[in-house]
Simulated assay, not measured.
Amino acid sequence: MKNELDSKFLLQVFDKIRQHGSKEGDEYKLMGITAFTDHDGYTLYIEDVNVKLRFGFHNQYHFDYDSSDHYDSFEKKLKQIDKTY
């Protein structure tokens, strides 16, 4: 399965989740999406209940999910956050 989310888009959505989401510990939550970083801030994590995205150094990212339907739903949530905020 090929995932083609733009790095700029991912960073933009991550920032919107941090700005507009509710903070719970070190995590920010908005519209069913959770966003947080590792301890040094170099790796970003964006996830929902079915999909985990790790975005790190040199704009490399990795998705972990079981079905393309889960990925499609996750992508729609990210696009909705970007559009709404």
Rank of each mutant, 00 (worst) to 15 (best):
G32Y: 06
N50S: 04
K23Y: 00
D38Q: 11
L53Q: 13
F55A: 03
Y45L: 08
D6T: 01
R54T: 13
D48C: 12
Y61F: 12
Q80K: 09
Q60K: 14
Y45S: 07
N50C: 05
T37M: 05
D48V: 07
H62V: 07
G21T: 01
F57A: 13
T34M: 05
Y42K: 14
K8C: 06
M31V: 03
H20V: 00
S7V: 03
E75R: 15
T37P: 00
D48Q: 11
M1D: 13
E47N: 08
Q60T: 14
D66N: 12
E24Q: 06
R54D: 02
S67W: 12
V49G: 14
K2V: 04
F63P: 02
E27Y: 05
M1H: 11
H70F: 11
D6K: 13
E47P: 07
Q80P: 09
H20G: 04
H58E: 07
V49L: 15
Y71L: 15
T43H: 13
F14N: 01
K76M: 07
K52F: 08
Q19P: 02
D72R: 08
S7E: 02
I17C: 00
D82T: 07
K77H: 07
H20L: 04
I81F: 14
F57M: 10
E4W: 12
T43V: 13
N59L: 11
S22Y: 06
F57T: 07
N59K: 13
M1R: 15
Y65W: 15
F74P: 00
Y28D: 01
T37R: 05
E27A: 08
F74V: 04
G25M: 08
I17L: 01
V49K: 15
D6F: 06
M31W: 11
D72H: 12
V51Q: 06
K83H: 15
T37D: 02
F57I: 09
G41M: 07
L53D: 10
M1K: 13
D48L: 10
F57C: 11
S67I: 03
S67Q: 08
E24G: 10
S22A: 10
H20A: 07
S7I: 03
H62N: 08
S22K: 12
I33V: 10
S73L: 14
F36S: 05
D6I: 06
L78A: 09
G21N: 06
T34P: 03
D69I: 09
Y28R: 10
K79Q: 13
D64I: 14
E4P: 02
G21S: 03
F63N: 07
T84G: 05
S67P: 05
M31G: 01
E4K: 14
D15N: 09
E27C: 01
K29G: 00
K76F: 05
E47W: 09
E4N: 15
L44Y: 13
H70W: 10
V51P: 06
Y45H: 12
V49Y: 11
D64A: 15
K8D: 03
K16M: 00
F57D: 13
S73E: 14
A35I: 01
E4H: 12
H70L: 05
Q80D: 12
T43K: 14
S7F: 04
D64L: 15
Q12T: 07
D66I: 08
Q80T: 14
T43C: 11
I33F: 06
S73N: 13
E27S: 05
Q12V: 00
